[in-house]
Computed example of a mutant assay.
Amino acid sequence: MKDTEKAIKSEAELIRQIKEGDDAALINLCQLYKPLINKIKSMYHVRYYDNQDWEQDAMIICHESATSFDLNKGKFSSYYKTRLTNHARSLVRYDNAYRRQALKQSISLETAKKNHILPLNKSFASIPEIPLSENIAILTARLSDLEINALLVGLGIKDQEDVINNLKISQLTLARARSRLVQKMRQTLLS
């Protein structure tokens, strides 16, 4: 009985410390509820969610729960368990949403080859036999200085306003250069 009272008092102290912004108290409180976190993690399977994701979410929810918990009402363990369970259920609902069913039903190319599953007949651009690095070298040799600047703007390396001001061109001129760049990319990389 004394151990239970001591745990409740230390839990209340940790919650007070978390409300004051103590990160170490948050880690200690999460360690205190590690068995609960592991139980909920084992109950709900979420695709592409690993242990680090669960622990991070559990810590975030623990922090939110501690900061919003009223020490004069109920038990923190029940409050935290409810919030963590609701979060896990939301993740499962999101994972099982109807519009994501196609992703769950997809299979890898290796599995398709192993099971002799043929792809749908759809027209697609064939991958050139020339290595991509050679195609890029050919493309850059074909580009003018203005088109190279348009490429750098498109890649986010240069700022559009800086290019317009440095080259003393209009926004329309840069847009036309971008259009020519796209045409040359299609001709060089897809043919």
Score class of each variant (00 low, 15 high):
Ser144Ala: 04
Asp70Gln: 03
Val182Tyr: 11
Val92Leu: 11
Ala150Phe: 04
Ala7Arg: 15
Ser191Ala: 12
Arg180Asn: 02
Pro35Trp: 06
Val46Asp: 03
Ser65Trp: 10
Asn149Tyr: 07
Arg178Lys: 14
Ile148Gly: 04
Arg186Tyr: 10
Glu20Asn: 15
Val46Trp: 04
Ala175Asn: 15
Asn135Glu: 07
Ser78Tyr: 01
Gly154Cys: 12
Glu11Ile: 02
Leu139Lys: 07
Gln17Glu: 06
Asp23His: 15
Ile107Lys: 13
His87Tyr: 10
Gln56Ser: 14
Ile40Glu: 07
Gln31His: 13
Thr188Ser: 09
Asn28Leu: 11
Ile138Val: 13
Arg16Cys: 09
Gln187Val: 12
Asp3Gly: 01
Leu118Asp: 06
Ala137His: 11
Tyr79Met: 08
Leu139Cys: 09
Ile61Asn: 00
Ile27Leu: 12
Arg47Ser: 13
Asp23Lys: 15
Tyr79Asp: 04
Ser179Tyr: 13
Asp57Ala: 15
Lys19Leu: 02
Asn166Phe: 02
Ala25Arg: 05
Ile169Arg: 08
Leu109Lys: 12
Leu32Glu: 08
Tyr49Phe: 15
Asp70Thr: 00
Asp70Ala: 02
Ala7Thr: 13
Glu161Val: 11
Ser65Arg: 11
Asn166His: 05
Ala141Tyr: 08
Glu147Asp: 05
Thr85Phe: 00
Met185Leu: 12
Ile8Thr: 08
Leu155His: 07
Leu152Thr: 02
Thr140Cys: 11
Arg93Gly: 06
Leu151Gly: 03
Ile157Asn: 07
Asp3Phe: 09
Asp3Glu: 14
Leu14Asp: 05
Glu129Phe: 01
Val153Phe: 09
Gln105Asn: 12
Ala137Phe: 07
Leu120Met: 13
Phe69Glu: 09
Glu55Leu: 12
Asp159Ser: 03
Met43Arg: 11
Gln105Glu: 13
Ser106Val: 00
Leu172Lys: 14
Ser108Met: 06
Val163Asn: 06
Ser108Val: 04
Asn51Ile: 12
Glu5Met: 14
Ile40Trp: 05
Ser42Cys: 12
Ala66His: 06
Arg16Leu: 12
Leu91Lys: 14
Ser10Met: 09
Pro131Leu: 10
Ser170Ile: 03
Leu29Gly: 02
Lys9Asp: 09
Lys41Pro: 01
Asp159Ile: 05
Thr140Leu: 14
Lys39Gly: 00
Lys75His: 11
Leu181Ile: 06
Asn121Val: 10
Leu103Trp: 09
Ile15Arg: 04
Lys34Glu: 09
Ile107Tyr: 05
Leu152Glu: 04
Pro35Gln: 04
Tyr33Thr: 06
Val153Leu: 11
Ile60Glu: 08
